[in-house]
Design a protein around this nucleic acid. Structure first.
Length: 312
DNA sequence: AAATAGGCCAACCGCTCCTCC
DNA sequence: TGGAGGAGCGGTTGGCCTATT
């Protein structure tokens, strides 16, 4: 439609990486007032960003129900299965993986899963074996993630994803839940029931071309209702019950851990390199602000999983 | 130690869809 | 019914980090 992008409409708008201060403003605004109209959020929150940018930041990073960390083997399998059916409809795929964003899944697919499939001699776009015999040989020669002897997903899916953690602003860093979609459900997508890999072995690469006709029912069976993206439409009331009543509030209210020394934060900021080096708000009078100066490791000990409990 | 290459990921861009008037 | 504006989606890019040479 040729509509100007938000950046082109108002030249004063900021672009690029978000600073901790911006994150804080956006987070506090949505926590207190809900989203409402995204186009008005930047103004109301005092941000020099377009609404689109705010929305993206909230969905992909600030949302309290986000799951962090590397993808589990179950998630990986589910993504593969869903992708064969849905193609590059990342938002639909994401709706079957609570706590994961379409962007996250898309990046995971492009950077990791595509490569894996090719190594196994499978065309990522068709999920069919590559006709090329050489490719098949190459696939056979490479380790298979489903091989019982192969290293589990943590190291496999993938090192890069697993090792990187949010550097500075991490409102809800989720520890690795050992996310389990239900082994039976996932296994059924590929080869029918199997007993969690303990008894019957997981399918090998050939399993990828199996019948996935039941995949689309999985979300209902597991009780996944909402797309992770849809969570951005939380009302203030929903936010209140989901966030403010949670452990996070207890902690932010002073009942939780104390912030680490500022020097550690500085180190993290230096490490990130992306933020503008603005001053961190460490205001004891504002409980919510404590959260933004906490290092990831400390927050991980907190119970942030309330938001996702309904999924399990 | 420095240079280079590759991987990863956050965020932008442009388009389509949806809703409202 | 059609237009305008907002929301959402998927593709792409830029920059940082790490591994390798």
């Amino acid at each position: 439609m040729g509509r100007l992008s938000c950046g082109g409409v108002q030249p004063k708008l900021r672009k690029g990486l978000w600073s901790p201060e911006e994150d804080e403003k956006l987070y506090n605004h949505i926590i207190r007032h809900g989203v409402g109209c995204w186009s008005s959020v930047p103004k109301l929150a005092g941000l020099q960003r377009c609404g689109k940018s705010c929305r993206l930041r909230w969905i992909n990073y600030l949302r309290p129900d986000l799951k962090r960390g590397s993808f589990s083997q179950q998630e990986e399998d589910l993504i593969l299965a869903l992708h064969e059916i849905l193609g590059n409809r990342w938002s639909q795929i994401a709706s079957h993986l609570p706590g994961r964003t379409d962007n996250e899944i898309k990046n995971f697919w492009n950077s990791c899963l595509k490569k894996k499939l090719r190594q196994r001699g499978i065309d990522p776009s068709t999920h069919k074996p590559i006709a090329n015999a050489g490719a098949a040989e190459a696939g056979a020669a490479l380790p298979d993630a489903r091989d019982p002897g192969h290293k589990p997903a943590a190291g496999d899916s993938d090192d890069g994803l697993a090792q990187k953690q949010p550097a500075v602003f991490d409102p809800f860093p989720l520890a690795d839940l050992g996310f389990d979609l239900g082994a039976a459900s996932v296994a059924a997508l590929y080869c029918g029931p199997y007993d969690d890999g303990v008894g019957k072995a997981p399918p090998d690469a050939g399993g990828f071309v199996a019948d996935y006709s039941s995949v689309l029912d999985v979300s209902e069976n597991l009780g996944y209702g909402e797309s992770s993206s849809n969570s951005s439409n939380w009302t203030c009331a929903e936010m209140s019950s989901a966030v403010l009543d949670s452990e996070v509030l207890h902690w932010a209210s002073g009942g939780g851990a104390k912030p680490e020394p500022y020097t550690e934060l500085e180190q993290q900021q230096q490490h990130s390199g992306g933020y503008g080096g603005g001053e961190q708000a460490v205001d004891d009078d504002d409980a919510l602000e404590h959260k933004f100066s906490l290092p990831c490791g400390q927050e991980q000990s907190l119970a942030h999983f309330d938001f996702n409990l309904e999924y399990f």
